[in-house]
Amino acid sequence: MKAFTVLTSTFVPLPVENIDTDQIIPARFLKATTKEGFGKNLFRDWRYVNNDEAKPKPDFVLNQPQYRGEILVAGKNFGCGSSREHAAWSILDYGFRAVVSSFFADIFKNNALNNGVLPVQVSDEFLAEIFKQPNDSTLTIDLEKQTISIDGTAKKEYFEINEYKKTCLLNGYDDIDFLLSIKDDIVQYEEARK
């Protein structure tokens, strides 16, 4: 997993609430047996007319060249619905390192963290503020300090992250490394329960 420390980037605004994982990556793309290559199908049905790559929908933000960046900013309750981790893989594979929203569905949040994509939960007001910014403005996310700021303004907010997950992300190691390191405890627990 790639470590995450400080990220400054322009952002892609998607002010839609309740974006579910079926929209992020439709079920028909779940037939793969590897984690790579999902980026081109991110928001597939919102991106193209009749699923035709030759016909991008011009009003969808990923088809608008003025919006670029490593941060996706989305409406409230992002990532609800199916537990498919493919949603996090497609976001990462497309090139996003962070998603900002005023609310995240639980499983998505975990899946994102497990893949080095940082979910940043901000207040409704702060989210509205970001959506008001011009398309060339940048955001800075500082994981160590747990802050997100709209660069060039005084607007800054603190965000919550589980202490353990934060350490993992800062160092680029994951839960499995940790669990493998405590195998003896697990075996002892099993013995004690018998």
């Binding site: 499995i176 940790f178 697990i186």
Partner: peptide, 22 residues
């Protein structure tokens, strides 16, 4: 409860998951 694929991998590797109490 439902889990993501990274968590499936965790359970394969250790029969355990890291979970915060809801």
């Amino acid at each position: 409860f439902g889990i993501g694929t990274s968590e499936v991998e965790m359970v394969f590797a250790s029969q355990c998951l890291l979970q915060s109490k809801p």
